[in-house]
Amino acid sequence: MIKKTLGLGVCAILATLSSAAFAEGKIVISNWDGYMPKELLENFTKETGIAAEMTVHATNEEIMGKVVASGGKGYDVLFVSGQFGEALHKLGLAADLDHGNIPNLANLYPEAMKLSHDEGLKYSVPYAWGTTGLCYRSDVVTTAPSSWNDLLKPSDAVKGKTTMLATDRWLMMPALLALGYSINTVKEDEIAAAKAQLIETKKTLLTYDDTTFYQKLVSGEASMVEAWDGWCNYGIAENAQIKYVIPKEGSDMWVDTMVVTSASENKAAAEAFINYVLKPDVHRWVAENILYKVPNKAAMDALDPKLIEQYPNLGLSPSELLKFEQLRDLGEGQKLWSKTVTEITSAN
């Protein structure tokens, strides 16, 4: 196990701030449930003296709504996907970071500094990253899928036994990639073409599902699903016949990030929390227990090779990952996307 304490920059800051200030300024973190070690906050407080509490959000959209409504007040650190962090920064709700307070950034892969939504990590720090692909039962699907069209235009053998992700960016993505379009397009003709295909595809689906799709694979209710790589790993953990593949047309590159709110009155403490998460032994827990790749080289280097043998997508290198287009904030184009997805999901 690799151990690393807080860097000198953070130690100096903590020494200059009174414990009373921290006691009065407990930081509040909002994260997805189960997305970090249960004991993390307790251990963070023991090591730094900074009190912290966590609230949970189910979706990016949920926490965005709360933060926009409150101006970020009541929150210090948010876990959000990269495109939502980008939107928060454009709205002035995500603070610029002082890298001097986060020396454990040095543990990240060099590629982590090149993320298109925030090159140089000016306001966000990546927590996990990965791909979206096809997760399937290799004992049921006799020919391994290789294209998004295997999901969009399924064979008779799997019709009615496929699922797609319900969140708009990932619901639209397979059709856009199959058509050769950018996953960030806001061109009306391209969106219309994807919509037409997805309305046809809907007729072949078991359901749209963001949360239980891997369980449907395990039970046999589904044979092939659109899945985030880490969630497919949950299925693989229960049934070794479940496999994951990135279609030949490619994937998105999604990034879940940590941002500090502009409204935070405890910015140094919030940055100390991010620094703590980037400790190799802490960040390694994410890869070992959530089964997602993390952008922390020191953490990934410490993984047991047997884990990557069992879950091959954990072995995707940062350079391979960065070949895929990263999801970006769509700005005003999000209205077109939301309208289109509503029309798809409500179509007969």
Rank of each mutant, 00 (worst) to 15 (best):
S19K: 11
I27T: 04
I29P: 06
D33W: 13
G25E: 03
T16N: 11
A15L: 09
L8E: 13
C11P: 01
K26D: 10
G9A: 02
L6H: 06
A15W: 10
I27A: 04
N31H: 12
A15K: 13
I27W: 05
K4F: 01
G7D: 08
N31W: 06
G25V: 04
D33I: 09
E24R: 15
A21C: 03
S19F: 02
V28F: 02
T16L: 12
S18K: 08
I13W: 04
S18F: 04
S30I: 06
N31L: 04
D33C: 10
I29Y: 04
D33F: 08
A12H: 10
L14P: 04
A23V: 06
D33Q: 14
A21K: 11
K26S: 14
I13G: 02
A21N: 14
D33A: 13
L17D: 04
V10A: 14
I13F: 11
L14R: 15
I27L: 03
A20Q: 15
A12G: 11
V28M: 09
D33M: 13
S19D: 05
K26A: 15
W32E: 06
L8R: 07
E24Q: 15
G7W: 00
E24Y: 09
A20F: 05
K26N: 07
A12Y: 09
L6V: 02
T16F: 05
A15H: 11
V10T: 10
G9R: 05
N31Y: 11
S30M: 02
G9T: 00
G7N: 08
A23N: 13
K4Q: 14
N31M: 08
S18E: 10
E24F: 07
I27H: 03
A23D: 12
L8P: 01
K4N: 06
N31P: 00
G7I: 00
F22S: 10
S30F: 01
A23P: 12
F22A: 12
A12F: 06
A20V: 08
A12L: 13
G34R: 12
S30W: 00
S30V: 06
A15I: 01
S19L: 11
G7Y: 01
L14Q: 08
W32K: 03
I13R: 12
